[in-house]
Computed example of a mutant assay.
Amino acid sequence: MGDISYPTAHTTTIDNSRMRLLNKIKAGEFPLMTFVAIPSVRQAQIVALTGLDGIIIDCEHGHIGDDAMHNSVAAISALGVSPIIRIRGPAHDIIKRALDTGAHGIMVPQINNAEEASQVVQSSKFPPQGVRGQGSAFPAIGHGLTTPEYMKSANETIITFIQIETRAGVENVDAIAAVPGVDCVFIGPNDLAQALLGYTPANGDEPEFVQAIDKIEAAARKHGKWFARMVNNGTTAKEARQRYDTVAITGDTKAIQNWYISEFEVARS
């Protein structure tokens, strides 16, 4: 599980200006993120130039393979934005592969219990905290560091996002949030609604859904972890500022479609 006395993303004193998302969330500045599902270095650059702080490269549900994952991280980090990779599951080799791109963090979906969360932390930290191996020149580049500098700093500057989106995840959220090295508890509202209510999206006022979010927030706050979620637009993001430390505002596929749909409606009206 790792020794709690080690510095984490919450307590690190390392100052690296390249770590935009970490620096803003630590300063309480409510950084903004979005998901990118389309595998293109140009797509990554275009989204990175919109003024956001972090881009979540979606290797779970997106059309992103290994090659696009590497290219996107390089492009995003070079433009001063923090690339986060949402991996497809909590497997050691997948976590290693994602972090070796130079990502500033990982997001791990469908975490059900503390044991799974601990394994994620183990895989994402170099010894003595974890079991991550080193053998790539690439991750240091994404942090603007030499490899020795990266080796010394990565354990306490990479943000580990754990997604709570299953019934078991909600039930065990206190133990999950207690795991040292879990930095941020992230709500996947659509999967959470599907798991709890049997449909998605939630209206947002269903008692079981509201209680689950309250429980997740309480666990995050109790254990001093950041609390985040996905939202649909800037208006809901603004409302979320009172409660959350950071949000991801939808993703590239929806953003493109939504803009075209609304403009075509205007054109035809």
Rank of each mutant, 00 (worst) to 15 (best):
G188W: 05
F264R: 13
R243C: 06
I94M: 11
N112D: 08
F161E: 00
N232L: 02
E156F: 04
A193E: 00
Q211H: 11
T250A: 08
D53R: 10
T236D: 15
A240C: 12
D66W: 15
S123T: 05
E156D: 15
N258P: 02
L32M: 15
T50Q: 15
L49H: 12
I158G: 05
D53W: 03
P189E: 09
T13A: 13
Y244V: 00
D191N: 08
T166R: 01
F264Q: 15
G181W: 13
V131L: 11
A212K: 00
T160E: 04
I57G: 03
E217K: 11
L197I: 07
N190E: 08
S5F: 12
T146Q: 10
P139T: 10
Y244R: 05
H70L: 11
I261Y: 12
P127F: 10
I261L: 08
D252S: 02
V182R: 03
E116Y: 01
N233E: 08
T146D: 11
I56C: 10
A114H: 04
V108W: 00
F161N: 00
P139V: 10
G130K: 00
L192M: 12
E208C: 01
Y260W: 13
I4W: 03
V185M: 07
Q134R: 02
Y260F: 14
D205Q: 10
T146W: 14
I95P: 04
K225M: 03
G80K: 14
H10K: 15
I164D: 00
T12D: 10
T8E: 14
P39T: 06
F126D: 05
N172V: 01
R88Y: 12
G234A: 12
V81L: 13
I111D: 08
N71L: 15
